[in-house]
């Protein structure tokens, strides 16, 4: 993390209205555009933006953490994931209404934070793989059919694709398990 990003995160974590307002003016339009173009409304964007801000500040206050990109990009990813979570939780609610109604707002926010931490662990390790493995697994996780991956990546057969994906996934799992954060996040 660059010192500028560090300073910015640290400033924001102090929770001063002026700093938060400056950040709003800078980043909210981008988040709003993303959510509105992905089945959301401006009011959803406002809600997600506020949740993401609180999440980042609470996390930083608990344990200052490092980010490897610009703070704006990092924050946008947090918002994107929260929106993805929101869309999927609406799907879940239709199927498991009874259990989900028992979760309080605070519990849900705590879950959202640990889920983001788990996402960051996984994506950080994915970025450490070779370019070829990274591309293959990205397509695999997007549930792209083997035949399409074979054509896109120029492999001879679906079986070769399957074997290659298996090796890359094995490597990714090794990297994740070696990280000290894994033990803390695996049973959540």
């Amino acid at each position: 993390m660059t010192s500028t990003q560090n300073d910015f995160l640290s400033t924001l974590s102090k929770g001063k209205e002026e700093d938060i307002l400056v950040f709003y003016q800078k980043v909210f339009p981008k988040v709003s555009r993303f959510i509105v173009s992905n089945n959301g409304r401006v009011s959803d964007a406002e809600d997600i933006f506020q949740k993401a801000l609180l999440q980042v500040i609470v996390r930083y206050r608990k344990e200052p953490f490092a980010i490897k990109t610009s703070f704006e990009n990092y924050f946008f990813t947090v918002c994107r994931n929260l929106w993805r979570r929101e869309l999927n939780s609406s799907k879940l609610k239709t199927h498991h209404l009874d259990t989900l109604e028992n979760i309080s707002d605070v519990e849900d926010s705590a879950f959202a934070i640990v889920e983001q931490e788990r996402y960051e662990l996984f994506s950080e390790k994915l970025a450490l793989l070779s370019e070829n493995c990274g591309n293959l697994l990205s397509l695999f996780f997007k549930r792209t059919p083997y035949v399409t991956i074979m054509q896109k990546m120029g492999y001879n057969s679906e079986n070769v694709v399957r074997q290659r994906i298996f090796k890359c996934k094995k490597r990714l799992i090794e990297l994740i398990k070696k990280d000290h954060r894994y033990d803390d996040l695996k049973d959540i």
Binding site: L54, V58, R61, K62, N81, R84, R85, L87, N88, S89, L92, I103, V106, E107, S109, A110, F111, I113, V114, E115, R118, Y119, F122, S123, L126, L137, S138, F141, K142, R143, K169, L172, I173, I176, D184, L185, D187, I188
Partner: peptide, 29 residues
């Protein structure tokens, strides 16, 4: 968890309410 979190469409939800890390964040929140 990897399949849900690293794809673009789905999301990997947590559900262990008694986990120490979740508890710590709840207190902080």
């Amino acid at each position: 968890q990897m399949l849900a979190a690293l794809g673009e469409t789905y999301w990997s939800f947590a559900n262990n309410t008694s986990h120490a890390r979740v508890e710590a964040y709840k207190q902080l929140l």
